[in-house]
Amino acid sequence: MTATHDAQEPTRRDMLFLATGAAAAVGAGFLAWPFVAQMNPDASELALSSTELDLSQIAEGQVVTIKWRGKPVFVWNRAKDQIEKAKEVKLEELIDPLARNENLEPDAPATDANRAAKDKENWLVVVGVCTHLGCVPIANSGDFGGWLCPCHGSHYDGAGRIRRGPAPQNLDVPPYAFESDTKIKIG
């Protein structure tokens, strides 16, 4: 200890205390991270990529549910009148004006054309997870000719757009592509 320094003045010893403390904090952070990160999806969960579906067996008006990444995906072969009804809806009437279509730009508007399959407007492919708290909505029900979520009463229309209830967003359209006229690949 050097007696020449005033106790009020910062010393080189104070610097050592700070440096030691900082090193310990960085070390604790690096040690804590693996304990947190182990709970994120593991390699086998991340490896779940795509699912294929044969569309030829789906009748007009029928909704088929398939499992993709542990969640249901609805594939709906919409009838003519159902498409017309969905097209009539004006954008101003919608709660969520965005298409929520992963195949389009994030700011695409929620028109029926932006929700349905490209050039195949009878096909509507949406993730069957209510955007409120994640229940599976019931098809062909509710007040808007689409889905009704039984958990907290969210109504979706014939294009899977939220129209009433606590859900904040339209049903997500997952990334998908037609491999042929009768086969789609989701994911």
């Binding site: 999806p41 542990g70 969640k71």
Partner: peptide
């Protein structure tokens, strides 16, 4: 996602 350990409620 962190709570689930996946993309939905599942085995993890």
């Amino acid at each position: 996602t962190w709570l689930w350990g996946g993309f939905s409620v599942g085995d993890p």
